[in-house]
Nucleic acid binder design. Sequence first.
DNA 1: ATCCCTGCAAAGAGTTTGCAAGTAA
DNA 2: TTACTTGCAAACTCTTTGCAGGGAT
Lengths: 130, 130
Amino acid sequence: MNNYSKQREAILDVMKENRTHPTAEEIYKLVLEKESQISKSTVYRNINILVDLGKIRKLNMTVGPDRYDYLYKEHSHAICEKCGKIFDFYYDIDKDKISNELLKQIEKNIDINSIIIYGICEDCKSKNKE
Amino acid sequence: MNNYSKQREAILDVMKENRTHPTAEEIYKLVLEKESQISKSTVYRNINILVDLGKIRKLNMTVGPDRYDYLYKEHSHAICEKCGKIFDFYYDIDKDKISNELLKQIEKNIDINSIIIYGICEDCKSKNKE
DNA sequence: ATCCCTGCAAAGAGTTTGCAAGTAA
DNA sequence: TTACTTGCAAACTCTTTGCAGGGAT
């Protein structure tokens, strides 16, 4: 698993050009513009490979299909559990401190990939009151 | 949506008695012991209601079906993206500080429900090397 | 040659939904 | 008697997989 593949290349390009946290389906549609013959299963397969290679990140969603993010720069995500909106933001999370705490409490080393804030955004909150 | 229902009660009981982060399927099997006639769709429906009511929390998994957690005590989760193991731990996350940062950066108020650490546990890491 | 790759179509996992009937307030 | 609930089965969404052929090294 590491050969060249122009389909895989195209998917990674799409992810680089696209900072909208697309779903697999959305990635598929975007890649179609470059590789008009690509199949959806190839897209799914290569997304998984790119996640395994650490080139892109999977965002586990409460709502709807999972989304993906290109790791252009260290940043954090806040996700609304109601509408699924994803907010990028920068926050200096002390991974080492959390790692140490984990080691102390659960006696395991965890390689931290990301920290995700789940909550309810103000739009959904006000909708609930209506 | 708030009437009494012994099925819903039974599901909540199962969640209270069970701190193993069960999947919907596992909850179904556990509830069957109390309510031998309950159907799977009722379980799914009520899990969603209990999540909406804020009684239980949905844990968005990278691997396998989503899992649920009863909110017996404020705690954090670290989830292995490879094997799906969930580790409970305590960490004093400054929600107010993060909220303020979010407000500053994205100009939205987010009600933070939970913060989840995603990573790779040491067992999976050593397996990869084999 | 060998290994990884692809498209296609079919299958799979997990979850939601429409409906007619039942239960609570 | 109104509003919410249930079980059943079918539908649905998202993702993975087997296979036969194609491409890279």
